[in-house]
Simulated scan of single mutants.
Amino acid sequence: MEYNLIDGKATATAIKKEIAEEVKKIVASGGKKPHLAAVLVGHDGGSETYVKNKVLSCEQCGFKSTLIRFEENVTEEELLACVYKLNEEEDIDGFIVQLPLPKHIDEQKIIMAVDYKKDVDGFHPINVGRMAIGLPCFISATPLGILTLLQHYKIETSGKKCVILGRSNIVGKPMAQLMMQKQYGDATVTVCHSHSATLKEECREADIIIAAIGRPEFVTADMVKEGAVVIDVGTTRVEDATRKQGFRLCGDVKFDEVASRCSYITPVPGGVGPMTICSLMKNTLAAGKKEFYK
């Protein structure tokens, strides 16, 4: 079967251009540039790359950005103090604390401390709760990016059977909520995880599979029905001596054997990843405009 590749990179570039145009208009009419701050703890390779890309995207969108760095041994008190300071800073419209955090810091405590009106990651329980009942809010970036891709490619989701692999708070759970809701996916949703007894059977019946289980090449051809739409959220670094950096990024889907069965499929890299950062930009623009919360 001839598949269509869902190009997240090109879609994100187009959306960032639209955001940049809007920011120009805001500034021209006397408004201020949206301002995003990022807090980075330690020197995790993946987090470094993400934050670098976020700063770059801010430039492309015409935003102001601030990067605050802490060493791995920062105390929970110091990090909380930083969060409270950012909550109070009037010029900062939204900010993120890059996860994961070192083991000695309670991530949930940090997330709870962020002012939900500035929580552009969409992780605060108030935003999560508002999303669950369909109220305006910051939607976490990866699920929002996936929704945007499905809309951009005019992929029909209403009434379709959608299987989500993974039940994390960052992707699996919010994705299930959104795909179920009438105003977004309007689909029939099944959530599977590593302990699901009928996982393969569920996948074989799915019109749309969203793989966010965190296991490289977990989804194989025998799990995908002909004509399905496959969205691959996984990004695991796999050792590869042929690459300059010594690794390659690997998705949750065995692309080479699955693609030929699909009507649409996302690549890794270049699929969901760029859309995650693009969604963060959308949320920051909304924060700057006070779109959800006055």
Rank of each mutant, 00 (worst) to 15 (best):
I105M: 05
L147D: 03
A141V: 03
L135V: 12
H124W: 04
S168P: 02
P136F: 06
G122T: 03
L135T: 11
G122V: 02
T75Q: 01
N73L: 06
Q181D: 04
N87H: 08
E59H: 10
L80G: 07
D106Q: 13
L178C: 05
L99C: 02
K154N: 13
P174F: 09
K160N: 07
C162K: 04
I111Q: 05
I155G: 00
G134T: 11
K103V: 14
I170C: 04
K103W: 08
H124T: 07
P143C: 06
C58W: 01
R69W: 03
C162M: 14
C82G: 00
Q177E: 12
I139V: 14
S168V: 01
K182Q: 14
V83L: 09
V171A: 09
L147M: 15
M180Y: 12
G166N: 10
M175T: 11
L178M: 11
F95K: 04
L101I: 05
G122L: 04
I139E: 04
I105G: 03
I126T: 14
C137W: 06
G166T: 09
C137R: 09
K118W: 03
E71R: 10
R167A: 15
E71V: 01
M179G: 09
A176K: 00
G166Q: 09
P136Y: 05
F70L: 14
V97N: 13
T75M: 02
Q181R: 12
K161P: 00
I96K: 11
T157D: 09
Q177Y: 01
V74A: 04
E90T: 11
H124E: 13
A132R: 15
H152F: 12
E71M: 02
L149Y: 01
L101Q: 08
E76K: 14
K117D: 05
P100R: 11
P136T: 05
G166S: 10
G172F: 09
C162H: 09
L135C: 11
Y153C: 06
K154W: 00
P100G: 12
Y153F: 11
Y84W: 13
I126G: 05
T142D: 10
M112K: 13
A132G: 15
E107N: 12
M112D: 15
N169V: 13
Q151L: 10
F95P: 07
